[in-house]
Each structure stands twice: as structure tokens, then as C-alpha cells.
Amino acid sequence: MNDAKPSPVAGPASTQSGVLAGVSAMSNSSGVRRAIGTTIGQYHGRTCARGEPVIEFNAVDKAFGPNVIYRGMNLKVRLGETLTIIGGSGQGKSVCLKLMIGLLHAEGGQVCYYGEDVGRMNAEQLRELRMRVSMVFQGGALFDSMTIARNVGYALREHTDMGDAEINQRAAESLTLVGLGPDEYPEIMEQMPAVLSVGQRKRVALARSIAVRPEVILYDEPTTGLDPSNCNRIARMIRKLQRELGVTSIVVTHDMTTAWYVSDRVALLHNKQFPFVDDVPTFRAIDDPIVRDFIEGRTS
């Protein structure tokens, strides 16, 4: 197993009780997690303690025609951690996220969530999975034809019987969490995505993904195309959401500054596998030229 070396989950794990208290407070105050039925660390009667693997890739093979992306790839994502996936462009980092959420299926091996093979889930199980594991797409992927409020409340409207007023309130809560609350931006709820800046769209996309209070959030290059201050804002937001909602985060990025800031562990995709997976201090100390070349931006 590539990530066999256990490393303590930094940050959130050290304040575990505080986080759980925060999550509990959030759950009770918003009721969204209760409405959706997501409970961190519990799924279909199975439990997972913080630091234990919640998502596992076991000998996964994936190819698009002749283009092999993964060959016998193994990776474990632990509950409560922020795992950052780094690697060259076009090597399949985003594919990894899409396999986790069942948008793509592996040709070989298993992608397991609480031990259940995502590839074998039926439509209803996948729907349930996607209520617990949400994804923030690279460009935001906001629905152009809907207002911000409808975008953020989309999943709640689809999967709960909450009324419009309640959904709007949840949308406002989620927008506030990402710094775009109606108190600061009074007209944001009725605005269309086209009028927002790229950074704001990414934050709205983040708000949309947290509206269902997921257990795991997948971030596909959250800082790509943003200026340094917005990169910093998004990175802090990822940390804040982990702290306040207790979510497990998987971040795909090229931006090493963001990676060092948000990560508990870092995984480097190389040669269709993850040969280097470690906590940040250990990863930064790795002397292998493959790792050094990547993190130092060398082209040798």
C-alpha cells in the first residue's frame, strides 16, 4: 500500500472535541445535516473514527481508450483530514475525484466509501453518496440559468421537502460561510452567476457544495486562475470549513503554496500511481528527485 505510513491528522485532529462540538452546534442550529441525514463517521450502520480510512482506492485501473490513467493505484483518505493531490497536468488528478463520487468508473480494482464499492452502487445509492461527498468543480460549474440562491439551494430543493423560505435561509447561511453572505452583498441571492468574478463564482460553488453539509468535499483545482489574494482567501476557506463543519477535504491543485497551507497529507501522482503520500513535513523532506522536481518546479 502506498500510503501505509500512518501520520497523525494535523490541525483538526488536535482539536477534535472542539470541532465535533462545532459540528454539533452547526447541525443543531441549521438542521440541514439532520434534514439530509448525513452524520459524520456513520453510514449505513458502519462507523469510521477520525483518522481511519473513509475512502479507499484498491488496485484501481482506469484508462480512456489507449490513454492509461491509473494502473494498480492505491490511496486512502482518512476521515477528518485534508489530503492534497498534486501532479502534472493531464495525469488524472481530477479523474481521481470523479472516481470517488461515481462520475467515472474504474475498469479494475475498487473505489470504496465506508467499504462499499462506489462502482457497484445503484442510482439511489449514488444519490445518497453524492449527498455526503460533494464536489467543487474547477470552473465552479454554476448553472447559468439560475440565480445564486437557486444554485446554492439546488441540492436541497432536489432532495429535501424543505420550503423555499427555509432553503433560501440555508443558502444564505452557506454563502455567509464562504464570505458572500447577504449582509455583505445584499443583492447576491438574486444575481446570476455571469455577473460574478471568477473568485466569487468559486466561492458560490463552494457554498453550493456545503449547503447539504457533506461529510467529504472534493476540490478540483480551487485556486486555478485566481490572483494571490483570492488564492489565499480560498485556502483559508478550505481550512475554515474543515474546522467549522468537520469535513474531510480532498484538494487537487498545482499551487504548492495552497497545498502546504491546507494539507494534512500530500499525495503525488506519478507514473499512474501515488508513490509518495505523507504528512506535510515528511513530504517536504522527501529527497527523491521526482518529488523535489515537482515541488521546486524544476524541469530536469
Binding site: 470552473g139 441540492a155 432536489e158
Partner: peptide, 15 residues
Amino acid sequence: MKVTEQIDAISALGA
């Protein structure tokens, strides 16, 4: 919508 991943986003939101 496909190019901007909105169709994937609909799936990802459980619809």
C-alpha cells in the same frame, strides 16, 4: 453545459 462541467455538477449534486 458539458464543457463547463455543469452536467457533471448536476450528477454530483445527486440529480
